Amino acid sequence: MRLTPKEVFFLSRPRFWMYVLGTFLVGVMSSGNLFVYDTTTTILLIVFGIFFSLPANVFIYGVNDIYDYQTDIYNEKKVKYESVLEPEKHKSLWWIMGVLLIPFVPFFFMVNVYAKLALTVFLFTGLFYSAAPIRAKSKPPLDVLFSAIIYVSPALVGFFITGNTNIQWLAVIGGLIWAFGMQTYSAIPDIEADEKAGVHTLATMLGEKKALWFCLLAYLISASIGFYFVGVIAISFGLIYVAIVLLSINNKSKLFKYYTYFPLINVASGAVLFFYMFFQDMF
């Protein structure tokens, strides 16, 4: 059974595109002024900006939907907020992922070794977060580690494509810790479905209350690290994330509603960070 273009588009979770495309753009901006690169570098940045839109998101969420079918059928969030991909469409999706990814293979060999390594890490974690034999999402704490790497590694790709290798690893660690919190919070509404399907995550291991406190700690640490690099911006958005977690702790019945706000908050925080660095480089 074939997938329609509309199904493929929504399968890619458009509201989540900026989780990888946004970090790619932030990585590019953190390396310096956008207008100083040669033509080849500029073309590569555009190409991989396209890659981290529809193709990369179809890849990571497509693999997820294929291997999560037995869990998704128990998950109210998937049924009402997203969709469950029927097994009859899995083969078609593998072909579509190949068609979307293959055109970027030649460009993989055009980037420097550091960007190649970052891309390889992205593809590896994007695949084996959900796929067997590793299926990291069911082996805590690999679930939060792999998920965090999926969303932070595009920033390294963007940074390294520019030719800059002088990376601030503390900032990368801060991004990973923020993603630990994001992954765990997003897994909390799935606890019941995951337990029914026998899937173990950090959220199921900790339980709802302890998982929320873990998220709170992760956001506090990442905001503190962010303050070192971008000052009050990190604290401002850190307070928003902390407030949502505190609201969730005190009103667990609305946790899923709060969860639906995260894409907007994440896009807003990413945009502010991007333009902060853009104008900093310009002036």
Rank of each mutant, 00 (worst) to 15 (best):
M110S: 00
F16Q: 13
I188W: 04
V199N: 04
I134G: 02
Y114I: 01
L11S: 07
V144E: 11
S153C: 13
I225C: 06
P55Y: 07
P14C: 10
G207S: 07
I149L: 15
S92F: 00
L176H: 04
F124W: 09
T165K: 15
E76S: 07
T4G: 00
K77N: 06
S31K: 08
D194G: 12
G126I: 11
G32Y: 13
L45K: 00
N112A: 08
E7N: 01
L239N: 00
T42A: 04
N251E: 11
I191P: 12
E82G: 09
L246K: 14
R13H: 14
V84R: 07
L170I: 10
R13T: 09
M1C: 01
A203W: 07
L216Q: 04
G175Q: 08
F51N: 06
K80Y: 07
S153W: 14
R2N: 06
G163E: 15
S147F: 13
S92N: 05
I60A: 09
E192H: 10
A179H: 12
R2C: 00
E192I: 04
A193D: 05
V28F: 05
V26N: 10
L85S: 05
F124E: 10
D143G: 05
T260G: 04
G158P: 03
S130R: 02
L216I: 08
N64Q: 11
L212N: 01
P263K: 09
V58M: 06
L25E: 06
A203E: 12
Y151F: 14
Y114A: 08
V113N: 00
M97L: 04
V245R: 06
G32F: 11
T42V: 01
F24P: 06
Y258K: 09
N164P: 03
S222Q: 07
T23Q: 08
F283N: 01
Y276T: 14
T4E: 09
M110E: 00
L220E: 13
P55W: 10
M29E: 15
W178F: 15
G22N: 12
P14V: 13
